[in-house]
Design a protein around this nucleic acid. Structure first.
Lengths: 221, 221
DNA sequence: CCAAAAGTTAAACACTTGTTTGAAACATAC
DNA sequence: GTATGTTTCAAACAAGTGTTTAACTTTTGG
């Protein structure tokens, strides 16, 4: 039970970077242990299997993130009788930015992992995360309902996932987007700036009271 | 040069299903050739490599999709002097739905592939697709500008990618979402219905004229 | 201080991967 | 019909995979 052993942490550090950069299946334990400068067998010793390592990497981010998010949501809950969608989405900002303070480019790595986890085989990570953090999502949903009580649960559900898609997709690929933004518009942007652009966009979509209707294609009357 | 040989098509058919279901790296050529009922070596014979096979699978969808999309955009362009964002986004509907007529669950498979391609190692498919179909994206962007000329190019760029994220993310994971929708709200939904819910959501976001501003967190004044 | 537990290590294991090979089967053209 | 080019096939290949083993070192608690 020595906590002096840093090899577990070293493996996690190396794994999260490589997983984010190259994906789960495309990253071998040998690459991870080489980068971490530990023995190959230590992954199986400390984590049991590669699959468990993936979950552990994921979990380390989620725990930090959800803890902060819960704090933010609680604060919003008690400070404001009435809340706006903008405010609810705003609770995501601090927890995300905070990750950048914990480790370099943290929010970027986290979102890349989320994006990859999402596309993962059979969605086994998604299931794992949903089980483990469903209460956080439930609370977030409750806040959204408070902000927009007229929305039906079904409409709410879909719009929530529309927003999730934008969030993960944008932040997971933000590096490429940042490059384009710089070269095409001479505008360097930070992750925080992207989020601050994204939230009004999503708020407007979420607040829209347009009913889902058939979209006319160009040819029809 | 016999075109009677169907093995190329059989490989493509098997590959696109397995790639969509399990991912690129997680699908072996042996699984593909077994399902296609062709010899293992035929993949390398007809496509050269697994990487080229992935591109070929992707390309078959993209060609059908972009061709239809160009038609839709051209029609909108000549029929309407002034266009709305809703209409521009509407040009995506038919090309997507049409894929379902070509093969069973086509749009679903296509979107799953898109989702996976997006998260792909080093984004080599994304690069490949951007090179090959950049003119289609350019035309789509031009239409969006026509619908919303006051938007700065940079703002436009970001909102376009916000929409892309929602689209791909939602449709790539639509099966899981459909399941939840059915069990939680007793509402069976089709891909088309999802799109018709998504487009007004995105239109509202895109049309929003709110400037990107600092989002207040719950604690601040 | 020393036995037991925890951690590390190099080597091997069993298996799967994409790709190549060279012969066989087939098609086409002269 | 034979020659030519194309396609299929079973088999093998080299390389890489996650995991296990058993010997070794280090840390820990009595």
């Amino acid at each position: 039970m020595s906590n002096k052993s840093q090899t577990k942490a070293k493996v996690l550090d190396a794994a999260e970077l490589l997983f984010a950069e190259h994906g789960f299946a495309e990253t071998s334990l040998r690459e991870i242990t080489a980068r971490a400068e530990v023995n190959l067998a230590s992954v199986n010793y400390h984590f049991g299997s590669k699959k468990s390592l993936i979950e552990a990497v994921f979990d380390r981010f989620m725990e930090s993130f959800t803890n902060q998010l819960i704090t933010e949501m609680a604060e919003l809950d008690k400070n404001s009788e009435q809340v706006t969608v903008n405010q609810v989405l705003g609770t995501l900002v601090k927890p995300l930015i905070y990750i950048d303070e914990i480790r370099p480019n943290g929010s970027s790595v986290f979102m890349k992992l989320l994006g990859r986890a999402y596309a993962e085989t059979q969605g086994h990570i998604r299931r794992f995360a949903m089980e483990r953090y469903s209460h956080v999502l439930a609370r977030f949903t409750r806040l959204l309902h408070k902000a927009s009580p007229s929305l039906s649960p079904a409409e709410m559900f879909w719009r929530l996932h529309f927003m999730l898609g934008s969030f993960i997709f944008t932040l997971a690929g933000h590096e490429a987007l940042q490059e384009i933004s710089e070269s095409d518009f001479n505008q360097a942007v930070t992750v925080e700036q992207i989020i601050n652009r994204l939230i009004p966009f999503l708020s407007a979509g979420f607040d829209s009271n347009e009913a889902p209707a058939k979209i006319m294609s160009a040819g029809e009357a």
